[in-house]
Nucleic acid binder design. Structure first.
Lengths: 224, 224
DNA sequence: TACGCCATTCTTGTATACATAAAGATTGAC
DNA sequence: GTCAATCTTTATGTATACAAGAATGGCGTA
């Protein structure tokens, strides 16, 4: 076994949470995970410790680890902060982007457009992520980039169905276009405002999120 | 031993890093820590795992844990993000503060003023933290509050001498006054801008930080 | 004397064993 | 029949044991 099993396990379990394999509120049994991954409890525990520090799981003393199941208000707060962080990244990008950043942004936007035209939501989801990461990179703040990526991952379980909403892809693409224009024009405040609005949970998307959270709560109450 | 030794150890070690007992770049020997705290290596490792997930320590495979020693640019980036996060909290606070928040803010500001008048930098440092936490609380975003507190802690090793700079306390107090006014007036953008400027590393403070980092780097190079 | 190779030692990473608290079941009393 | 108390069971928390990769020092050779 390579030197850093716990690191791989951390990624593995985190991925399971992010993709919804382990649902919010689900109990994470140490021995069960250990047998599943063919290791002992020790590296499993170390992985869970790391995940608890990031906020993916909660470890209650003597009662084991569960996937964090934040209250709806907390999820809204997280989206709210995400919106501001993206705005921040956009503002920095507008001020600091290089020629390469510009090319990457335009290319990522074009890929999103292609995905939107072919109405391939899965592909759009992927290209959308590339687009946003291009903005983070263009901010030229490695720290901000990391923070954005981390928060983005944490929110992924709550963003799953968003793009399947009617017309969301087209609206999203239009917003991307405006964002690219603002960044390339070096307009910090426009980039900030547009990105904030692009991410923010408001209008229809508010209802979508409520529906998602509602489903989750129903399931939870069924399970006791 | 109570059920959550690793949790206490995590706080203990994190505190050691924050207060400078464990300096950036310092190696954290597992058995050494274990004997020091009178426990086995297991909970020590679990604590270190958590600290590595937050970014306080770095665990290199098969080569142990060291206190993270970020490059100067990274420290600047962290301050930059901190400034924006504080601005965010201020903007939210301006919009959402309640009567109790208002009272807490005014009271915290008064305590800062008292500390400044008595020229007690240690006390001002403490009251200043209370003041900023009052702003986080007034943002009415538990998530943002947590993020701000966490980043604030991470930056503490680099903020140590800041208030001892000539006149910094008076300038800081003046800025606090303007910030309180903006928040109480409900002026989101003024609160944001003022707090951003209050935290940002610029002008004299840039030099102070460079000096601090310089000292650290010199030490590091002496140690190989 | 300097450089490189090998052996020893030390430390980390993982597994297992043991202690203990919480959850669940069973029995007894009212 | 229901509730409660106790015992059993199960899983977590910690310690210890073992395996294996780095670091270190010594030895030999150029």
């Amino acid at each position: 076994m390579a030197g850093n099993t716990f690191h791989k396990l951390r990624d593995e379990i985190e991925n399971g949470i992010v993709t919804g394999e382990f649902e919010p509120g689900e109990r994470l049994d140490e021995v069960q995970l250990a047998t599943r991954y063919g290791v002992s409890r020790t590296p499993i525990r170390e992985a869970l410790m790391q995940l608890s520090a990031i906020g993916f799981v909660e470890i209650r003393p003597r009662r084991g680890a569960v996937v964090v199941d934040p209250a709806p208000e907390r999820v809204f707060e997280m989206f709210e902060v995400m919106a501001e962080m993206e705005g921040m990244a956009g503002a920095f990008a507008a001020r600091r982007h290089t020629e390469e950043d510009r090319a990457a942004l335009v290319a990522a936007h074009a890929q999103c457009e292609a995905a939107a035209i072919s109405e391939d939501t899965d592909r759009y989801y992927y290209e959308n992520e590339t687009f946003h990461r291009a903005i983070y990179a263009a901010s030229h703040s490695g720290f901000l980039e990391e923070q954005c990526i981390a928060l983005h991952r944490r929110l992924r379980p709550y963003r799953r169905l968003q793009l399947r909403v009617r017309n969301r892809m087209k609206v999203s693409l239009k917003e991307h276009g405006d964002i690219v224009a603002a960044i390339l024009a070096g307009d910090m405040e426009a980039a900030r405002t547009l990105l904030r609005g692009h991410i923010a949970v408001q209008g229809d998307r508010f209802g979508d999120l409520v529906a998602t959270l509602g489903k989750r709560d129903r399931r939870k109450s069924l399970m006791g």
